[in-house]
């Protein structure tokens, strides 16, 4: 494992910790998209089915379990927690997730390495992760003054993807025969989706202003 991959994973981990701390400390999930969190849970569960039949390393196993449990925990807070659930604004979080999930499933059934249940579900999770942030970005755009921690959460998530791009470049240069086109193309699209957000995040940070995305 190279430094970019490790830094990417740690950034991903940190983004979730920031989100959980924000929700727990402020007892509010204002500006957090439940739809995106549910899509991530679906992504993690369909991708990490291999927990049941393949072992890579203790590190991988721990991270997989952490991602599944933490997104489940965020969803529990938003849906079930007595005070946090009252701060969830479902009227703003209206993205139609089936418009994301269905095309991803059709694509996964069409473009995959192997037509088996686990391989199609794994491919589906790769495609779905690329677009799962969209409900969150739309919600941020509708929120006039974005909460600093929510902004940081999305920034860290985008940073994790950018670091994965560097990880792939490093692996291409150092590992003969290494290639994974489905992952590369999806990951590049996923990172590109954050470009607009990065621009406004860095602009607001430099000007010392609250983040607000133009609609």
């Amino acid at each position: 494992m190279n430094i970019f991959r490790f830094a990417g994973d740690m950034t991903h981990l940190l983004s979730i910790i920031v989100l959980l701390l924000k929700i727990n400390a402020t007892k509010s999930c204002a500006g957090v998209s439940l739809k995106t969190q549910e899509l991530y849970l679906l992504v993690f569960v369909t991708r990490y089915l291999d927990l049941l039949y393949s072992y890579i390393s203790l590190y991988n196993t721990f991270m997989k379990l952490f991602f599944i449990c933490s997104s489940g925990c965020v969803i529990w807070y938003i849906r079930e927690h007595k005070t946090v659930s009252q701060t969830y604004d479902s009227a703003q979080d209206t993205f139609r997730v089936l418009f994301l999930a269905c095309p991803c499933m059709i694509l996964a059934l069409t473009v995959n390495h192997d037509f088996t249940v686990t391989e199609v579900l794994w491919t589906f999770s790769i495609y779905l992760e690329a677009v799962a942030i969209l409900p969150q970005l739309v919600l941020l755009q509708r929120t006039k003054n974005v909460d600093t921690l929510t902004g940081n959460y999305v920034f860290l998530l985008g940073g994790y993807r950018a670091l994965y791009l560097l990880n792939w470049i490093y692996r291409i240069l150092t590992e003969p025969g290494y290639r994974q086109w489905i992952v590369w193309i999806s990951g590049t699209i996923q990172t590109a989706i954050y470009c607009d957000f990065f621009y406004y995040y860095i602009k607001s940070w430099r000007n010392n202003e609250r983040l607000s995305l133009p609609s």
Binding site: I56, D114, N167
Partner: peptide, 10 residues
């Protein structure tokens, strides 16, 4: 036969 890349990333 196409070799499948190992799923060693997260």
């Amino acid at each position: 036969v196409e070799v499948q890349p190992p799923k060693d990333e997260l």
